[in-house]
Computed example of a mutant assay.
Amino acid sequence: MAYKSLLTVATSPTGLTAPIAAACQIALMADAHLDLLALGVDHTQVGYAYVGSGAVIIATAMDRAEEDARATEKAVNAALAQQSPGVRTAVETAVCQLGTLTDIVATRARYADLVVLQQPYGKGRGVDDEAVIEAALFAGMAPVLVVPDKGMASAEPRRIVVAWNQSREALVAARAALPFLKRADQVSIVVIDPPTHGPERSDPGGLICQMLVRHGVRAEVTVLARTLPRVSDVLARHLRDANADLLVMGAYGHSRLREAILGGATRDMLENAEVPVFLAH
């Protein structure tokens, strides 16, 4: 498997440099094509209004969304102009309402090998950014690479951490990340506080390590105790200690609503990501 079709989605003119630079680096490395979608999103929800005013409100909101789409397209082209001219790219601009954002993103993500997006949480981020990631992961069934504002050091990460908890999502992520894993110098399969009565109790992470090694991955297993309140805290500390370039993990082991309200490893890592995070569900 190789990444031959990449996708980046932008819903605002801000924060585009890091994901577009990373996507272009990967496209050059993999000899891939990069599609960029610039979206103008209408957030209007027409509830109570004077008779006949609803159509006016919608028309005005869509005009504003078209202006936003043009501004985002301009920012996308400006970010592309700073990259190597050898990247094959195509920019598409569209307007949608928030309720149809999932459909338009998912339709394009389904035909992408990898979707490269900006960090969804933080200053200047909004509901659109989180909706785009979830649309690509769930409805689009595509792996997503989330790039922090400081960018991606290299299109070929040398030190990669794979978060392993024996879940379906973690296995899907590890398989989808193989093009990165096979190029890495070191892959650490991290198991945090494995259950004493789980199916891998005698050899935590052993089976996934064996699978990856058979693909030529230089993998080893690291078992960590849960010495901090949250699993994400332990994982973040290990990423710093290992000087990792990339984290690979399954996305949303719990429901998205539960993670949004109570928090979860996926949300915590995306909120505080210091390195790019490769997600799959």
Rank of each mutant, 00 (worst) to 15 (best):
G216P: 12
A219I: 06
V221D: 13
V221C: 07
T222Q: 14
V223A: 04
L224E: 14
L224D: 00
A225R: 01
R226Y: 05
R226K: 15
T227D: 14
L228M: 14
P229A: 05
P229N: 06
R230G: 07
R230H: 05
R230C: 04
V231L: 12
D233I: 05
D233A: 09
V234W: 01
V234Q: 00
V234R: 02
V234N: 04
R237D: 13
R237N: 09
L239I: 10
D241F: 02
A242H: 08
A242C: 06
N243L: 09
N243F: 04
A244S: 13
A244C: 06
A244H: 01
L247V: 08
V248M: 04
M249C: 07
M249R: 05
G250Y: 00
Y252D: 01
Y252T: 02
G253D: 12
G253C: 06
H254L: 12
S255Q: 05
S255D: 10
R256F: 13
L257H: 13
L257S: 04
R258H: 13
E259C: 03
E259Y: 10
E259V: 04
A260H: 15
L262K: 10
G263F: 09
G263T: 10
G263D: 05
G264I: 06
T266P: 12
D268I: 10
L270C: 05
E271F: 11
E271Q: 15
N272K: 14
N272L: 11
A273D: 05
A273M: 12
V275S: 07
V275D: 03
V275R: 12
V277A: 06
V277D: 00
V277M: 01
V277I: 15
L279K: 03
L279H: 01
